[in-house]
Amino acid sequence: MLVSIYRYNPDVDSVPYMQDIQVEIPAGKDLMVLDVLGLVKEQDATLAYRRSCREGVCGSDGLNMNGTNGLACITPLSAVVTNDKLVLRPLPGLPVVRDLVVDMAQFYKQYEKIKPYLQNDTPPPAIERLQSPADREKLDGLYECILCACCSTACPSFWWNPDKFVGPSGLLQAYRFLVDSRDTYTEERLSDLDDPFSVFRCRGIMNCVSVCPKGLNPTRAIGHIRNMLLSSGT
């Protein structure tokens, strides 16, 4: 199989280039893209990429594989390869540190902005703040996010305004804290989001939904935030 990989080492290369490498795929096996990267690295040890858990938990190997963002470790070749060719690029829209490694600072900054922790100004109970099963259920489909950035880097609005638009991942987390029954800062959180960029740059294209490797739905969460803003603003 032909693997074409985006290469860029700022210390050596003046411009990025695509490197074509022929990789032998063991017959009868549906390898994951991450395994293929391992095979490539055996041939060319200078290739840089991130990975850790190799089972879709840590979120460190988000890549653009044949044009679609996803986690290399849980994406089987059969799901992305066409015409026996695999094109691997770093997540789009973020600065490249080297080869497939991107600088996630802007992405984390947006995450930080939504204050991803419980805020509660009522006196803490002796042991812990309890939550009914029904309230707990509201966090399903939100808390599972592993911050892999596949969604935000697939979102045109995030490409154009990565410093102003919070992006699908950050907004999914914003909603996760907005609906949490143990958080009392709903009003403050909403007023932080009521500008023309943070939430309202979402154009509902749903690229985020189609790439999320955890099957989450940021667009729906963004819709919920908009409704909360609407009901507090009308």
Binding site: K164, L193, D194, D195, P196, F197, V199, F200, L229
Partner: peptide, 18 residues
Amino acid sequence: MVTNVTNLSRSGLYDWMV
């Protein structure tokens, strides 16, 4: 909160509604 002076109303919600 991202501030801006050139949009219609300074509020994203208002612009969206409009």
